[in-house]
C-alpha cells in the first residue's frame, strides 16, 4: 500500500453534505473485476454532461482549469456515506486524489481510504469552509499542505492541527499491508477459533458436509438447480 507522510497540492472544494459513494462512482461506472480503470468514472454524474458520456461538464469543479491537477478534496460532512463500494476510493486514487478534508466520513469509506493510501483528514466544518474560501481566490497559487507526521493542515496563514486514530495513522505513514500484519497473529487466531468451535459449534454450521441434517436440506435446495 502507498504510504502517506506529507503531501502538498491543489485543493478543490466540493462543499456538499452527504456526498455518497454512488455520486463518487455511479454503479454504471463500476462494472469491473479489477481495481484499475475506475478514475474515468469518478463523479461521472456531475463531471460529464450525459450518462456514460465523456463530454466534460464545464461547471463541475474538477473540470475547471483553475483546479487542474487537484489532488485534495475539501468535502462536506458525512463524506463518502452510503454504499460500501471501494471502487469509490480506487477511482479517487486513480484520478490523483491523495487526501480529503471534511468534518466527517461514512465509516466504511473511511476504512477504504486508509486501506488505499488516501488520507481522510477530519477538521471542523468551519475550518474546512475557511480553507475553501482561502483556496477559491486562486487555487493554483494556494496549495494545501498536509503533514500526517505532524498532524497539520497548512495553506498560507491557515494552520490547523488534526487528529487521527493511531491505527489508521500508523498504517498510512508506513504503507502497511494489514493482512500481513494480522497473519503475524495467526497462532492466536487458531487458538481462538479452536476454543470458539468447541463451545459454539453452531457458529461453524456445516454448509457443505453431508453429515448433518441441515446439509441435506441444502443438497435438496441445490439438487433442483436449473
Amino acid at each position: 500500500m502507498k504510504a502517506f507522510t506529507r503531501h502538498s497540492g491543489v485543493a478543490a472544494p466540493l462543499r456538499r453534505r452527504n456526498i455518497d459513494t454512488d455520486a463518487i462512482i455511479p454503479s454504471r461506472e463500476m462494472k469491473r473485476v479489477s481495481r484499475h480503470g475506475l478514475g474515468e468514472g469518478l463523479f461521472a454524474g456531475w463531471r460529464y454532461t450525459l450518462p456514460g458520456g465523456r463530454e466534460p461538464n464545464p461547471e463541475f469543479v474538477l473540470n475547471r482549469p483553475e483546479y487542474s491537477a487537484a489532488s485534495i478534496l475539501l468535502g462536506g460532512d458525512n463524506f463518502g456515506c452510503g454504499s460500501s463500494r471501494e471502487h469509490a476510493v480506487w477511482a479517487l486514487a486513480e484520478f490523483g486524489i491523495r487526501a480529503i478534508i471534511a468534518s466527517g466520513y461514512g465509516a466504511i469509506f473511511y476504512t477504504n481510504c486508509v486501506r488505499n493510501g488516501v488520507l481522510p483528514v477530519c477538521l471542523p466544518d468551519a475550518d474546512v469552509e475557511a480553507l475553501a474560501q482561502l483556496v477559491e481566490s486562486d487555487p493554483q497559487a494556494n496549495p494545501v499542505a498536509i503533514d500526517l507526521e505532524r498532524g497539520e493542515v497548512r495553506c498560507g496563514t491557515f494552520c490547523k492541527p488534526f487528529e487521527m486514530d493511531s491505527a489508521s495513522r500508523h498504517m498510512l505513514l508506513h504503507g502497511l499491508d494489514p493482512i500481513s500484519l494480522t497473519l503475524q497473529s495467526d497462532a492466536e487466531i487458531v487458538r481462538f477459533e479452536g476454543a470458539r468451535r468447541a463451545r459454539f459449534g453452531w457458529a461453524f454450521s456445516p454448509l457443505k458436509s453431508n453429515a448433518s441434517e441441515g446439509s441435506q436440506d441444502v443438497e435438496k435446495m441445490k439438487s433442483t438447480e436449473s
Partner: peptide, 8 residues
C-alpha cells in the same frame, strides 16, 4: 465492509 476488508 470494503473490498480490501473482504480480502482481509
Amino acid at each position: 465492509i470494503g473490498t480490501s476488508e473482504v480480502e482481509h
